[in-house]
């Protein structure tokens, strides 16, 4: 087995030490730090970007909050304006309604008074017509010329009974 040939050992050890030490120095001094640098700078960059993104997110959230507050204020404002307008309109319409009612009431009572007067007048006219008719009927049937005031009294009494 060539591996057990001790005469080759010193040469192998020598060249292993040389190549291994050179490789170690190249890696430890130059290449590994550079790889580490890249990885670190990338991690830092990502962390920074995330931080930036979080800051922007917080900012936008604050902006949304102020916008929402403004919106809520405007909405409340509009609500009060609407309420006031509604109240004013209600008062106005109530006043108009009241005036209309008063006028209608006045009209109705005036009309009632007129109707009452007309009825009185009709009653009086009915009494005189009935008296005249009773006098004429009495004269034609029994030839009595009744006194007009007596007839009127009787008619009035009869009308009052009915």
């Amino acid at each position: 087995m060539p591996q057990l040939d001790i005469t080759t050992f010193t040469a192998q050890i020598f060249w292993l030490v040389v190549t291994f030490v050179v490789l170690y120095l190249v890696l430890a001094r130059r290449l590994l730090p550079r790889i580490g640098e890249v990885i670190e700078s990338r991690a830092k960059r990502i962390a920074e970007d995330i931080e930036q993104a979080e800051k922007l997110k917080a900012e936008s959230e604050a902006a949304i909050k102020t916008y929402e507050a403004a919106l809520a204020g405007a909405r409340a404002n509009a609500q009060t304006v609407i309420g006031e307008a509604k109240a004013a309109a209600t008062a106005e319409s109530a006043k108009a309604l009241a005036a209309l009612e008063a006028r209608l009431d006045a009209d109705a009572s005036a009309a009632e008074a007129r109707i009452r007067a007309a009825r009185e007048r009709a009653k009086d006219e009915l009494a005189s017509v009935a008296g005249e008719a009773a006098s004429a009927i009495a004269k034609r049937l029994i030839g009595v010329d009744a006194r007009s005031d007596a007839v009127a009294a009787v008619v009035a009494a009869e009308l009052k009974r009915t």
Binding site: T7, T8, T10, A11, W15, L23, L27, I35
Partner: peptide
């Protein structure tokens, strides 16, 4: 008096060294 001959083993050690250095560089 110590044998430090450059052998085929040494050659391939240097190939390994060169390959790693080249690849990582």
């Amino acid at each position: 008096g110590v044998d430090v001959s450059f052998t085929n083993s040494s050659l391939w050690m240097i190939v390994v060294l060169a390959a790693i250095t080249f690849f990582l560089s």
